[in-house]
């Protein structure tokens, strides 16, 4: 099998950056599992529920809360579009009522965590990311450094940022620049 190369390959060097002392920020990458988009039209909900049901997932979900089941995550990113991770190949569901699209190689997931992670996020996006407003399970679609991303809160002060792969390095650098004063630990798998 050919080598799968991360778009952050040159950035993922384990070590410390920025301020010394307690680490405020931990940065790393989480490999994307199959990431597919399903989209449709008037009959979208019926067609989407069939796919979700086959995958052991529940309803269509809300526009701000990720649905997680069976190791899979779904995001309702628009009235007529859902993203699903860890799906396997969905191309067989392509029909006149449903468009399926493989985006597994289109996104890099940057993991951002640590006691200062909300401070860094609030410097980068114009959205309230306080504990109450952006708890675990919530997601939002915003832009960091002029690049559109999906950001999900995946735990206590822990976030995953889905970045288009060609922009991954520049977004990584923008995050680092903002996180330097808090001290960064980079985790390399």
């Amino acid at each position: 099998m050919l080598e799968l190369k991360s778009s952050l390959n040159t950035k993922l060097q384990a070590g410390r950056l920025g301020a010394q002392g307690d680490t405020g920020i931990t940065l790393g990458e989480r490999p994307v599992r199959d990431l597919w988009q399903i989209a449709g039209w008037q009959e979208f909900e019926t067609a989407a529920i069939k796919v979700l049901s086959d995958l052991g997932l529940g309803g269509l979900g809300s526009y701000s809360l990720a649905s997680m089941a069976k190791g899979r995550t779904t995001w309702r990113i628009a009235p007529d579009k859902i993203l699903i991770e860890n799906t396997g190949n969905l191309s067989d569901y392509m029909s006149a009522d449903l468009a399926t699209l493989d985006l597994s190689h289109a996104r890099t997931v940057i993991s951002l965590s640590g006691r200062k992670s909300r401070d860094v996020l609030s410097q980068l996006i114009a959205v309230d990311v306080s504990d109450d407003a952006f708890p675990e399970g919530r997601f939002l679609q915003s832009g960091i450094h002029h690049v559109g991303e999906l950001i999900q809160c995946v735990g206590d002060n822990a976030f995953e940022i889905y970045v288009p792969v060609s922009w991954a390095e520049t977004v990584w650098e923008a995050i680092c620049e903002n996180a330097m004063p808090y001290g960064i630990e980079i985790i390399a798998e």
């Binding site: 040159t10 690049v147 922009w167 390095e169 620049e177």
Partner: peptide, 14 residues
């Protein structure tokens, strides 16, 4: 510096 605007890289860039 280069952060005036975001920079886009091909997966073969390096």
């Amino acid at each position: 510096g280069k952060h005036f605007q975001p920079t886009r890289l091909s997966p073969i860039h390096h």
